[in-house]
Amino acid sequence: RPPDVLQVSIAPRTNAALGFAQMLPRDQHLFTKEQLFERMCMALGGRVSEAISFNKVTTGAQDDLRKVTRIAYSMVKQFGMAPSIGPISFPEAQEGLAGIGRRPFSQGLQQMMDHEAQLLVAKAYRHTEKVLQDNLDKLQALANALLEKEVINYEDIEALIGPPPHGPKKMIAPLSWRDAEREKQDTGEEEAPQQPPLRGEEQS
């Protein structure tokens, strides 16, 4: 299904990012396991489409893969969404404090959580691969439109691949978008699932 995208561009905006997707900000604070899984699939779209289209991958998906990894570990370690681990939650590791203090779980449990996170990512990759294989014509249409225009917006995407199956997306005024972005910067909020998780994202 089409992601909650305002605009997609292949025009570089910095030295690090060769293009980006501007996402709708969200006021949702609770997410189901299925919704988080879909977000992983959405973030994996670029890497999977590279592999399908060119039979090789580049470093361009690094930020997306970081998001996918963070979501998977959050589901397993914080949100209690891995049946084999159970409904337990551990605090997120603080950057720069590695080796300080003691882990609240054993090495064996850490290995189990690593395994569960890897399984989640692998399952999301396979699902994303199937979705793109089943919709290669739409992938090609979007790619051709980007090559022609460099930037496409929500209306362009809807015209190319059809409306979202669950109804039209709620559009917001540019002022509301700027306010949401400013608030995110002021609070230092990241794009990965946190508390509250995943308020807004921007894919590189």
Rank of each mutant, 00 (worst) to 15 (best):
169 K>Y: 10
21 A>Q: 12
129 E>M: 03
177 W>P: 00
20 F>I: 08
200 G>A: 08
107 Q>D: 15
23 M>I: 05
37 F>G: 05
23 M>L: 10
155 E>S: 14
103 R>V: 00
168 P>D: 13
123 K>H: 03
37 F>I: 03
18 L>E: 11
1 R>Y: 09
6 L>E: 13
83 P>E: 06
154 Y>I: 04
104 P>C: 05
76 V>G: 01
51 A>Y: 08
191 E>S: 12
115 H>F: 05
64 D>N: 12
56 K>V: 13
173 A>F: 07
16 A>L: 15
92 E>K: 14
5 V>S: 14
183 E>M: 11
98 A>N: 14
23 M>Y: 03
190 E>P: 09
189 E>P: 09
32 T>C: 00
132 L>R: 00
200 G>Q: 08
15 N>R: 15
74 S>F: 09
12 P>L: 13
75 M>D: 08
98 A>P: 02
44 L>N: 04
35 Q>K: 01
1 R>W: 08
47 R>G: 00
7 Q>L: 15
34 E>C: 00
58 T>N: 03
161 I>T: 04
99 G>K: 10
68 V>K: 04
136 L>H: 04
190 E>R: 14
146 L>N: 13
182 R>H: 14
76 V>Q: 02
86 G>Q: 08
48 V>S: 06
187 T>G: 03
12 P>T: 13
32 T>Y: 00
28 Q>A: 10
73 Y>F: 13
135 N>A: 15
174 P>E: 09
172 I>K: 10
100 I>T: 11
185 Q>D: 13
75 M>N: 09
178 R>Q: 06
39 R>M: 11
117 A>K: 07
195 Q>N: 11
65 L>H: 09
138 K>S: 07
161 I>C: 05
107 Q>Y: 12
98 A>H: 14
109 L>P: 02
174 P>C: 07
192 A>F: 06
180 A>G: 08
72 A>N: 14
88 I>A: 02
9 S>P: 04
97 L>I: 12
134 D>A: 14
15 N>K: 14
26 R>E: 11
187 T>R: 13
147 L>S: 07
95 E>T: 07
145 A>T: 00
67 K>H: 15
